[in-house]
Amino acid sequence: MRRRSDEQGRALLDALLECRSEPGLAARAASCLDLPEHGRYAVAVLRAGGGEPAGVAPEADGLRFFRRRRADREVVVVALGDRDPAALAALLVRWCPGPGGIGPVADGLAGLGAARRLAEVALLTCPPGTTDIVRLEERLPAALLVSQPELSARLVTDVFGPLLALAPADRALLVRTLEAWLECGGSAGRAAGRLYCHRNTVLNRLRRLERLTSRSLSRPRELIDMVLALDAFRMTAPQS
Rank of each mutant, 00 (worst) to 15 (best):
L91G: 01
C197A: 10
A153G: 12
A237T: 04
R234Y: 04
L195V: 04
A188H: 01
L217G: 07
A54L: 10
G39Y: 11
L35G: 11
M226N: 06
P53N: 12
S5C: 09
A167N: 03
G193P: 02
V156L: 03
C126E: 04
A119Q: 05
L155V: 08
V156E: 02
G129Q: 00
F66C: 07
V76W: 06
P168I: 00
L195I: 04
A90T: 07
A90R: 13
C96A: 08
L151W: 09
E59W: 12
V202T: 05
A232C: 15
L166P: 00
E52W: 11
G185D: 01
V45I: 10
R116L: 03
V93S: 06
L25A: 14
R116I: 01
A79L: 13
A172E: 03
D170H: 06
D225H: 15
P85N: 13
L228G: 06
A89G: 11
R68M: 13
F160W: 04
P141D: 12
S218V: 09
D225K: 09
A86K: 14
G113M: 11
G113T: 07
G193M: 05
D132E: 08
G129C: 00
L91K: 02
A87W: 12
P53H: 12
A180G: 03
T201G: 08
A229W: 05
